[in-house]
Design a protein around this nucleic acid. Structure first.
Lengths: 153, 153
DNA sequence: TTGTCTGCAAACACTTTGCACTTTT
DNA sequence: AAAAGTGCAAAGTGTTTGCAGACAA
């Protein structure tokens, strides 16, 4: 089942309608495989040629629906929601560069093991987890070294 | 060094002043060892007998300072900032019950190992991490079973 | 006395919502 | 024709900020 098909099914199942706006949004979301926020998506929609557009509220509404439909995963970074593809995409976690905001994906099955072990220990029914390692990415590290160089000049 | 001493030092070092409000806030924060948000702290401050009070902006400002001073750790849950003691408190992660909002602490040195291994792999300089396992705590689980019981009646 | 701090009210960023109108079914 | 969706503007939330008066050093 493609993401679009899955979304259609999700909508149909709840008596929701397949509108031009929702189609445009899902198409735009799946045009690239990146992390993005509502504002970025809005900009990309506006860059799209074509007669249909989608307003900010519609974008927010549709993003929430896509999360509910299991198509997107949402995480909150620095006070704003960031989305990534979820459906059919393997479980993973993130390195977050607090200097440039870049998100680097990594997967470790150990994390899942720890999660389950800890949950069992606390009679806790785990439904998901989020591991974000913050720090500085290699690009920003070298940039920082360079500017330190320049400071001395 | 007690938290208070450390905060005093932090303030002095930056030419900041030790005001009644800051003293009141730090005292209130260290009265209990719990997770709390700005609004809860504000309520507790108001419950405090005494002539001095602190306004909402002052509470927010002071909480940020305490984070900078390394006394508090901040995390964001459901769109609001939640704080916990950090200074002199061992590294740990959390189980978060999405039903009642309870935070359960756990510590696993494996998480740190994974973090360092992944960081090395990506030439990433890790400064911290946050692992939150979401799900349902044991109390809410049994409550749920009970209400299912009642449904049948 | 000097400069920081406070409290107020207003601004803020992000997200959600009420409502009249449009569109899908 | 009925019901859901859209866009607009307005309202929400949690948090931050400009500024005049209060206070610590």
């Amino acid at each position: 089942m493609t993401p679009l098909e899955r979304f259609d099914e999700f909508l149909q199942a709840r008596g929701k309608r397949i509108t031009r706006q929702r189609r445009l949004i899902i198409q735009c979301v799946y045009a690239r495989h990146d992390h993005f926020d509502a504002e970025q998506l809005l900009l990309e929609l506006r860059a799209h040629v074509g007669s249909i557009q989608a307003s900010r509220p519609t974008v927010y509404r549709t993003l929430n629906e896509m999360v509910d439909a299991g198509l997107l995963k949402k995480m909150v970074l620095d006070g704003r929601a960031v989305y990534e593809h979820d459906y059919g995409y393997p479980q993973h976690d993130h390195l977050y560069c607090s200097s440039c905001g870049k998100l680097i994906e990594f997967s470790s099955n150990e994390v899942g093991r720890i999660r389950d072990a800890v949950a069992r220990e606390h009679q806790f029914r785990a439904t998901g987890h989020r591991l974000i390692v913050t720090g500085t990415c290699s690009v920003c590290m070298s940039r920082r070294v360079q500017s330190r160089h320049q400071d001395r000049v």
